[in-house]
Design a protein around this nucleic acid. Structure first.
Lengths: 300, 300
DNA sequence: TTGCTCCTCACGTCACGTGAGGTGGC
DNA sequence: TTGCTCCTCACGTCACGTGAGGTGGC
C-alpha cells in the first residue's frame, strides 16, 4: 500500500496511526497493520471506504452489506458480459464498417421483447392477417422470445437478427410460400396438420435407420405429395412431383436450420436435429422417386 | 440523455450543436442525434469520452481499440468473479464471525501456487523427509496445483483450504498412517505398488457388479490383508484382520473423499468415484470376512 | 404574472495519485 | 554535504450530477 493511501485513511479517520512523532511522522503498530489488512481486503471486494468504516465499527450488519454487495456485483457482471458480447460480435468484420455495424448491433441489443418479435416478423415478412403459411409455424419462428437475456442468449439474438437483416432470407421464404398463396385458411389448417403427422412418422423412420429409398420412405413420400397436391388443388401426377422437387431444391437455404437452432436457444428449448433430419430424409425420398435410386449412400 | 450530458459533450467538443440561438439555447440537428446515439452506444460498452472522440474522428483504429477494450473487460470480469466467490463463500456463516472468516478467506485466496501447496502440506502434516506413507499419494494430494485459478477453481480452493484448516483432518490422517510408522522406505514402496494393483483389480470387479461377499472380493481381501501384514511385519491371523477392520472404521472420514474431489477439480482431472467405490467395496469385503455375510444388500 | 425550461459558473463525487515546496535523519 | 524519505497543502482524475443565481418564451 502506498503512503498516500495511509495518509488518505488517516484523514478519513479510518486508520489512525498508534503514534505520531513530534515531527509529524506516522508510526503504525501491529494492530494497525491487521486493521489495514482487513481494510484492504474489504476494498478488494469492492466496498467503499465509508461502508468499510461502518463494517469495522459494527454500525452496519455484515450479512446485509455482503448480500447487497453481491446483488451489485451481479448487476455489474451482467453489464460487463453485455459489453463483451457486443464487442466480440463487432470485432470481426472490416475496419471501415465496424462503427456502422456496432451501431446496428447496439440498437438490436437494446430492443424489448415485443420489439424483437416485431423485428423478426417484419424482416421475415410475416403479417398475421395477410400472410399465408401455417400460423403455428410462424408463431414458433417469431413469438415467445424471452424477456430477459443472458449473454449466451444475447449472442444468439444478435446472430439471429443479423441473419434476417439481409432481405434475402425473406425473399427465399416468400418463394417457399408462394404455392400456398390462394389456399384458404381451413384447407391450410388441414394441410399443416397432415404434414405434422407425416413428419412425426418420418422422425420415427429415421430413428429406425430406414433408408430414404426404402418402402416406408416411399409410402410417406406418396402420402405427402398426394396431400400437398390436394391442398394446392392439383393432380399428383409425375409432372407435379417433378415440379415439387424443383421447388424445394430452388428454395432450400441452409440458414433456415441455423435460424431454428438460434430460436431454440433463445427459448430454452433443446434443439434437436430430428425434424431437420426427417425433412431432409423425406426430400431425399422425393429425389429417389423422381430420379430413381442414386449410387451414393444416404449420409446419416 | 440528460441536458447535463449534452452540455458536457459540448464543452469537450465531442458533440457541438448544429445551431445556437442568440440567447444561448443549443439546437441539435438530425445528424447530431445520430452522432449522439453513436456516442451513447460507445459509452455503453465502456469506452471513455476521449477514446470515443478518437474513434469517431478516425484518429484511432477501431479494431485495435475494440481488441484492447475486450482485454480490459476480461480483466474486469475476472476481478468481479473473484469478488463474487469471496463474498458468496463468506455470506453463509454467523454474523459475528463473518469479518474474521472473510479475513482468512481473502488471505487464502491471495496465496501463490507454492504457498497454497505449502499450506496444504502443513495442514495435513506432510514433511517429505520425515513423513511416512506413500510419497506418490502425498504428492498427488498436495502438489501440482494450478498457477492461475478461475472462479470455479478459486471456490474449490477455498473449500479445500477450509476443509484442512481445522486440525482434525490432520489428526485423523496421522491415525491412519500410524501403523506404518516404523516401516522403511523400500518396504513401503513395495506395499504401495501392491496396493495399487489390488485397487485396480477391485475397480474392475466393481465394474462387473461383483458382490463384496463374492469369491473375487474375498480373494482380493485375503491378498490385501496378507500383503499388509507382511509390510507391518505381523502375521495375518484373525486377530490382525479384526484389528485392521477396527483401524479402518476408526480412521474413516468422509471429508477425504471431498478432498480428492476438490483436488481433481483444481487439477482439471475428471474426478470419478471409481477409486473411492473400489476402496469401500474392499472394506465391505473385509467386514464380511470378519462378521460374516450381512443381511443388508450392499448399496451400489 | 406564473411556472417551466434553458443558460452559465462552480463545486461535489470516489479513492486515491501527483506534483510543489519544505524538513528531518543517515 | 548529499540523497532519501517523510510531511502538508492543493489540485487532478472521470463523466457527469447538483445546486446557485439568472433569464427568455408561453
Amino acid at each position: 500500500v502506498s503512503v498516500q493511501t495511509l495518509r488518505h485513511y488517516d484523514k478519513l479517520g479510518l486508520l489512525t496511526p498508534a503514534k505520531v512523532t513530534s515531527t509529524g511522522y506516522r508510526l503504525y503498530s501491529e494492530q494497525d497493520c491487521l486493521r489495514l489488512a482487513l481494510i484492504r481486503s474489504l476494498r478488494g471486494v469492492g466496498f467503499k471506504l465509508e461502508t468499510i468504516r461502518n463494517l469495522v465499527t459494527d454500525k452496519q450488519s455484515v450479512r446485509e452489506t455482503v448480500a447487497l454487495q453481491l446483488e451489485l456485483l451481479e448487476a455489474q457482471l451482467h453489464a460487463l458480459k453485455r459489453q463483451q458480447v457486443l464487442l466480440r460480435a463487432v470485432s470481426q468484420g472490416q475496419e471501415d464498417v465496424m462503427l456502422a455495424r456496432f451501431r446496428r448491433l447496439d440498437v438490436l441489443a437494446q430492443l424489448t421483447k415485443l420489439e424483437r418479435e416485431a423485428f423478426l416478423a417484419h424482416q421475415l415478412g410475416w403479417n398475421p392477417q395477410t400472410s399465408h403459411g401455417s400460423p403455428e409455424i410462424w408463431a414458433a419462428a417469431v413469438l415467445d422470445l424471452p424477456d430477459e437475456m443472458n449473454e449466451t442468449k444475447l449472442e444468439a439474438w444478435l446472430e439471429l437478427a443479423e441473419l434476417v437483416s439481409d432481405g434475402s432470407l425473406r425473399k427465399t421464404l416468400h418463394q417457399q410460400m408462394r404455392p400456398f398463396e390462394g389456399v384458404d385458411n381451413a384447407t391450410m389448417h388441414v394441410w399443416s396438420k397432415t404434414f405434422r403427422e407425416l413428419l412425426a412418422q418420418a422422425v420415427c423412420a429415421v430413428k429406425k435407420l430406414e433408408e430414404p429409398d426404402g418402402e416406408t420412405a416411399q409410402k410417406l413420400v406418396r402420402e405427402w405429395t398426394e396431400a400437398l397436391a390436394s391442398t394446392l388443388n392439383k393432380s399428383p401426377d409425375a409432372a407435379f412431383v417433378r415440379w415439387l422437387l424443383e421447388h424445394f431444391e430452388a428454395t432450400y437455404d441452409p440458414r433456415f436450420e441455423r435460424y431454428w437452432q438460434l430460436v431454440a436457444l433463445l427459448k430454452d428449448q433443446t434443439y434437436s436435429r430430428t425434424y431437420a433430419d426427417a425433412a431432409n430424409w423425406l426430400l431425399e425420398g422425393l429425389r429417389v422417386s423422381v430420379h430413381g435410386k442414386t449410387s451414393e449412400p444416404y449420409p446419416v
